[in-house]
Write a protein that binds this DNA or RNA. Structure first.
Lengths: 122, 122
DNA sequence: TGCTATAGTACCCAAATAGATACTTGAAGC
DNA sequence: GCTTCAAGTATCTATTTGGGTACTATAGCA
C-alpha cells in the first residue's frame, strides 16, 4: 500500500470501512451489543458462518479494539466476547443501519440484493 | 447460498452489510452526498482506485439503487452519478461513521489499522 | 492525417477471502 | 479405555476480488 490520504477528512471513513467490512463483523457487533456472549453462542446465532471464519472475524475485531476476549482457564475451555468502551460507541451506527435496512426492504428494494437469500416471516 | 434468516430481525443488517461493503463504496457515497459528480471527478478523489474498480463499484451501487447514473449522449462521453432518494437516506449513517472514525483516531486506536497508510496533516 | 478527450471493455494474472475436513487439549462420565 | 465437551488450529482447495495493460468509440482541433 503506502498510500496517503489526500484529505485528512476522508481518513475516518477509510478507517471505519476497514474495521467493519468483513462478512460477519456487523452482525457480531450487533449481537454483542445486547450481551457478552460465549463463542458457541455467537456460532449458534450465525449458523452459516464456519468456525474458522468466526474465529478470524473475532480476532480481527479484537485486534481493532472493538471487542474484548476473555479466556477462563477451565476445561473444557470457556471464552467470552463483549464490546469494549470504544466498541460500544458503534452501537448507534448499527441501530441506524438496521433502521435503514428495514426501510429499504419495506420499500421493496431488497429483491435485487437477496436473490437467493430468502427471508422467513416470523 | 440459499440461506434463510432465522430471525427476520437481523436481515436488515445483512442487507446493509451487503450493499455497503466493497473497497470504495462508502467513500463514493460520501463524496456523492455533497454533489452529483462526473466519473472523472470521482476518480480524481480516489486516486488509488483503478478505473476498473471504480466502474465496478459504481455499477453495484447503481444496481442496489443507492445511486443513479445519467448518460449524456455527447462526444466525448459525459456521465454523472448522484444519490437516489433511498441513497440519500444513508447520509446520516455516513456522518456517524465519520464521527466515530474521528473519535477512534483521536483516542489513538488508529495505529493498528493504518500501518502503512499514512495520514497527512493538511 | 493524426492527436486529444471521456468513459468505458476485455483479458489475463495475482492476491485475498472463504469453505471443507481433519486434528488438538485435558478433565469428566460411562 | 473410549467418548464428549468447547474453542480452537492446520491444511488444502475454491471462489471472489483486485490490478495491469491494451483496446474501443467519435467529434473537434491542428
Amino acid at each position: 500500500m503506502n498510500e496517503k490520504c489526500l484529505k485528512y477528512d476522508i481518513c475516518p471513513m477509510i478507517l471505519v470501512q476497514k474495521i467493519i467490512s468483513g462478512k460477519w463483523k456487523i452482525l457480531i457487533l450487533w449481537y454483542l451489543s445486547y450481551n457478552t456472549l460465549r463463542f458457541n453462542e455467537i456460532k449458534k446465532r450465525l449458523p452459516y458462518a464456519t468456525q474458522k471464519m468466526l474465529t478470524q472475524q473475532l480476532r480481527s475485531l479484537e485486534k481493532d479494539k472493538l471487542i474484548f476476549r476473555r479466556v477462563y482457564p477451565v476445561v473444557p475451555p470457556k471464552v467470552d466476547y463483549g464490546l469494549t468502551e470504544i466498541g460500544k460507541r458503534i452501537i448507534p451506527i448499527l441501530e441506524m443501519m438496521h433502521g435503514f435496512g428495514a426501510e429499504y426492504l419495506e420499500q421493496g428494494y431488497g429483491a435485487s440484493v437477496f436473490q437467493d437469500f430468502v427471508t422467513d416471516e416470523e
